[in-house]
Design a protein around this nucleic acid. Structure first.
Lengths: 243, 243
DNA sequence: TAGTGGTCTAGACCACAAA
DNA sequence: TTGTGGTCTAGACCACTAA
């Protein structure tokens, strides 16, 4: 039986069920890819009607936290490479099509966070961040550089890893650290190419580039990644779809 | 009684109900702000159960086509200035806050569409477009210029209007032409300020700017607006929120 | 064949808004 | 007080999946 109590009527019952299920996923009690109990079993366990469980599961499915398949059941959503690419990778090529960029890790270092990152990641004294500098290419054409900063306390042992980090980081975060990226903010500005851009992107000095500052959130609005990208837009563009 | 038939079982019943209601809104049978019949009345009229109507209305509410208020009823959503601003205006100031920009119309002209716009708007021979050039400011600081192009066949009489167009165009489209903007695509690139930018945005030649190419869609994926914006990002930024 | 989610129905009770 | 949508329940039947 569940240890969570459903008592107060402050929030709708189905919302409380959503909360309970989200907590179970966040805490790893239900792991990525794992099947959930069937709707009738959940209803019985939580002491609510099947319709209420269904409404909660539908909401979780809309938030892409679970995957429902008729005849099979409901499972905790797994972030595949392709999924995350389409979900958070908003670049298109000259023809307006999405593409799968290659990735090259150029530098990786552990360092003190500085005041801004310490605040962003809620780090305590002496806790460190890891910073990865990578270049993305489409075929042999350089497109973008990105400087990814991660709080080491959230990724324990990441500073001991050998070899480059995986190209698609978010499925790696999920599989190896149980950290699911739920939401991303990107602040976009226009900048001119500096010497580093000239070196890694192969552009002329003074070329205009997009600077994209990304903040990635997991459960409870906790920030687990900061990323600064610099993007050539002579053959590519950033696509923003608003509904 | 309804003239629409609910027969085939190819699509779920509630989906067919959504389709019928969307069509009624698109065709102006249910106008912006108008109250819909109550759920039981709709259920009776369409010959489905109240639960099915409810599911359809919930989906329309999620798509922001209707507004539901307990104790009051369901009405066709109205796009207020503030609503549309928050929904489609993705700029933030230096502090990361949204703001309400001022607007100044600098030029307006009727012209032949050219091949690209003719194709985009599905225009027939001799049909024209109207092009509006405007400057947006925050206080006395110029932020952005925008060149809005509209197909005149979709906005009959717009070429005869006196005085500048309203600052927020989308509620104007909806009120005066029954055209509801449902979705917007924006393709963002980095460019260098040209002489026109220097003149209207007060920047130095060579300053990097964001170029934002927007396409706005109404029902049936019909395109009703094209917009080219050029944005200073020295004190502002484009904010993209991905979920 | 058994079990799952997908759909559809029918009703109960509650909270809210307006007259 | 009346009528609305918001919530919750209880079940029926269907379509799909896997064994």
């Amino acid at each position: 039986m569940s240890t969570e109590k459903i008592e107060t009527l402050a929030r709708p019952l189905y919302q409380q069920v959503v909360d309970i299920m989200m907590r179970r996923i966040a805490e790893g009690q239900w792991k990525s890819g794992q099947m959930l109990p069937s709707e009738p079993k959940l209803a019985q366990e939580l002491g609510v009607s099947p319709g209420t469980v269904r409404k909660a599961l539908d909401q979780l499915a809309a938030d892409q936290l679970v995957t429902r398949r008729q005849g099979l059941g409901t499972s905790v959503a797994v972030s595949t490479r392709a999924d995350m690419l389409y979900r958070f990778f908003k670049l298109v090529d000259g023809a307006g099509k999405r593409f799968m960029p290659d990735c090259e890790e150029l530098q990786r270092k552990v360092q003190s966070p500085g005041r801004l990152f310490a605040e962003l990641f809620h780090l305590k004294a002496k806790q460190k961040v890891i910073s990865v500098f990578r270049r993305r290419t489409n075929g042999d054409q350089p497109i973008m550089t990105e400087r990814v900063t991660l709080p080491i306390p959230a990724f324990i042992g990441i500073d001991k890893l050998e070899g480059p980090l995986p190209t698609t980081l978010y499925d790696f975060f999920e599989m190896d650290y149980g950290l699911k990226v739920l939401r991303v903010d990107e602040k976009i500005t226009a900048v001119v190419a500096n010497p580093e851009d000239v070196e890694y992107l192969g552009v002329e000095p003074g070329t205009p580039l997009l600077a994209i500052e990304r903040t990635a959130y997991t459960f409870n609005d906790q920030i687990i990644e900061h990323r600064l990208s610099r993007l050539r837009t002579d053959n590519h563009a950033y696509l923003s779809e608003l509904t």
